[in-house]
Amino acid sequence: MAFFSKKKTIPNMYEDLQAQIDARRERWFVFIDKLNTRAEELYLAALPELNALKASDSDPNKSTYNKVLSGVCGQLANMRSKAYDAQDREISDFYDYLRHGEITALHPLSRYLTEFRNDCYDRFTEFEQSINMKTDKLREVERDEIEYEYAKIIDSFNADKDKFRCSQCGHLLPVERIFFISVHIVCPACNTQNTLEPGRSARNLQFIAKKLAEKRCEHLLNAYQNEIQNERDLYFKAHNIKLDSIHKNDREKAIAQEQIEAIHAERKRSIENAPHLYNVYLRALYDEMNRILPEFKEHHEKLYLEQINQKGENYGK
C-alpha cells in the first residue's frame, strides 16, 4: 500500500487522493473483467466437452461426466473466491485505511470514497451473479433432460410389461404399473409367488420424481420469484424517488410523495401476493409428485406440510 501512504501537503491534495481512488477503481474493474472473460471462456469450452463426455460415456451413472462437471464448477468457484479475497484485501482494506485516516466523514471526498466502494462491490456482485448463472446453466443440462429420462422409463415399462412370465408355469404375470422396487406378484394361473426385480430404468423412477415435478412446475416457481423481485424493485424505485426529491422544491416534493405512496401500495400488494404464489407452487409441486409416484403420497404430504410450515415461519405467521 506504499503508493497512497505518502503524506499530502501539496495544494492539489484532493486531486491526488481522488486520482488514487480512481486508479484503484480502474484496476479493480480491469481485474474483474479479466476474470469474467476467463470464466466465459471456460464455460464455452466446457459445454461441448461435457456434452461429448455424456454422449460417449457408457457408464449408466455417467461418472466421468459428473466428475468433470464438478471440476468445471470447482474452477468457476475458484475464480469467485479469488475475486472475493481480492475484494477484501484491495478494496475493503483500502477503503478502511482511508476512512479511518485521511477521508473521515466530513472530508470533501467522503462521498466519493463511499461511491468508490459501492462501485467496486457492485462490480463484484455482477461477476458473482454471472458465475452463479454459468454454474446453474451447466447443471441445467441435466434438468432439461429429465422429461426425456421419464419418457424412457415409460417406454421401457410399456415394452416390457407383457413379457413378465411366471417362473413356475410360464403364465403372463399381471404387471399393471411401474414397480420401482422389488415386489411379490402372484401368478393368476398357478398361484405361485413370483418376485419381480425391476431393472435399472424402473428403479430410476423414484430418484427422478422430484426433479421431474420441479421441472414441470418451474413456471410457478418463477412467478413467485418474480414477485419477490418485483417487491425489491418497487422498494428501490420509491427509495430513489425519495433521494432525488431531497433538494427539490415543495411542489416537486409533494408530487414525489404521491408517487412514492402509489409505489408503496403496489409493493404492499406484492408482499401479500408472494406467499400465495409460493403456496400455489408448492401444492402443484407435490400434486405432481403424487401423480408420478402415488405410492409415496403419504410421505410427500409430510414433506409438503413441513415445507409450508417452514415458509410460514419465514413470513412471520
Binding site: 479493480w28 481485474f31 476474470l35 476467463r38 471462456e41 475458484n78 475464480m79 479469488k82 481480492a86 484491495e90
Partner: peptide, 8 residues
C-alpha cells in the same frame, strides 16, 4: 487453475 495468471 484456469485463472492462476490473473492477479489484481
Amino acid at each position: 487453475n484456469v485463472a492462476d495468471d490473473i492477479e489484481f
